[in-house]
Nucleic acid binder design. Structure first.
Lengths: 258, 258
DNA sequence: AGCCTCTGCGTATGGTCTACGCAGATAAGC
DNA sequence: GCTTATCTGCGTAGACCATACGCAGAGGCT
């Protein structure tokens, strides 16, 4: 219940947060634990990675560890807390922070791409709902490095936060869409191109009788369906960064920085 | 199994899509159905709206309708198909399309805001995972109107699609974050401001001992935590539209439109 | 009239999370 | 060394969940 007292005197940290930061102090009485929280989390990740998030059940993780289902609840208050910890661990540390000679734009682009890469490496993560603002250790590190990229740009506090959320939200959206498509393709044993083609054909059939001029226009245009797979990702990212850059420019040359 | 033959001669539409567009032709033999698909979907929405998505179980919806659980499977192949239909219906029709005298930017802003409003009106929708590109009736209508907003901007087909996805993805991210926060607040009986304050305090405590200069900088800055609630939404949207506008300008004045 | 199809639904399978409480292990306090 | 408080893993059980399967009967079609 109480918390390890380093410089950190915090009576009121919610249990899941204390857990994530390794701040539970357990009195040394009683039998020794046969597992560690890290082991439990790692096993959860392993199962998720190998067989997908739905395969992650308490009983599955437990049997993987050779303990009973209910034992896990000595390590984790709730399944959802386990999932949160899995995500934080699986995300891993962020890419290196902005270097001294690096512009904010390049740094933020790298940071956004890091988000995408992490989600792609552990695709199950996209199905775990975000539970709130960044508070777990790796999440906080990512947050820090995102802010570092925007240092000295003249953006206000809330603007820096919003900008970072914009980029990470975009990475998440993109990861969801592209991975869902890829998985749908794999499930049906087709290439992603085939699935895409089938989609456009279906859309054409369905919209044929109705008033969908803009969609018909779209379908009439020649389509190089996916030259490079990540060109579209880049497109959105550049738009986004352009928008931020416009603001930063007005801030730099405009009214004195408050 | 077969499909109503209007101008639509399509042997191969997946079942869930045919269902959504009302294209199942059922031979008139056998007893009459006691329900309609629309009723089932509407009841699902009603339950979700009143008690949240987790309350939506097949047995719950069935008992609400006064039929047995398994009867629902005569209307819907799978629970997830029901959820998709619920989302499509609950989203409703998009806001009016771009008016003749309206610029693309105003129209796209309205469209994005429409997304947000829809998600806010039926907050449970954000927890239903997007199953793919827009194919259900209302989704397609939204898609159409989004494209209409970008007509005549000189953007290429893939660029128009990416732009729309950028905006709707942003609306979804934003809805998720803001609604999660609001719900967390409501659950703990506090105001959102209190929850936000508690978050910043926790973050301060946790990052105090570690190397988090940018976060400390952030925390040191004076915070008007949420003057108007939707100012941050506006911020991101404007950044995004600025980015798109930059591209459109280069397209308009740059190389001849292909 | 006879058939064939479609209806609603009862039953059953194989999962899910987790509340509760118990037996035994362990270390602190005396 | 003994007592005692505390913590461990875990067995049991409750309350759900989606859905496969198959049956009895309704009701148009021929």
């Amino acid at each position: 219940m109480t918390v390890k007292g380093g410089g950190v005197d915090d009576v009121e940290l919610p249990e899941n947060i204390a857990l994530a930061w390794g701040l539970r102090d357990r009195s040394s009485r009683g039998p020794k634990r046969s597992l560690s929280l890290e082991q439990v989390v790692a096993t959860g990740i392993q199962v998720a990675q190998a067989e997908g998030l739905p395969a992650v059940s308490m009983s599955r993780v437990a049997s993987e560890l050779g303990v009973s289902t209910m034992s896990l609840y000595r390590y984790v208050p709730t399944k959802h807390d386990l999932l949160d910890l899995m995500v934080d661990t699986a995300f891993g540390p962020p890419p290196p922070p902005r270097a001294p000679d690096e512009g904010w734009r390049a740094a933020l682009a790298r940071w956004g791409e890091g988000n995408l890469v992490a989600l792609r490496r552990q695709p199950w993560m996209r199905h775990v709902a975000i539970s709130g603002p960044p508070i777990n250790p790796n999440q906080v590190r990512w947050f820090e490095y995102g802010l570092v990229a925007l240092r000295g740009t003249g953006l206000r506090a809330t603007e820096r936060i919003s900008t970072i959320m914009l980029v990470s939200g975009y990475a998440r959206s993109w990861a969801m869409i592209s991975l869902d498509l890829a998985e749908a393709a794999a499930r049906s044993g087709q290439t992603p191109d085939e699935v895409g083609l089938r989609y456009w054909r279906n859309l054409a059939v369905l919209t044929a009788p109705g008033p969908y001029p803009a969609i018909h226009e779209l379908l009439a245009e020649p389509f190089d369906a996916e030259e490079h797979p990540d060109e579209d990702w880049r497109f959105g990212l550049e738009r986004l960064l352009d928008g931020v850059e416009m603001l930063i420019r007005t801030r730099a040359s405009g009214p004195a920085r408050d």
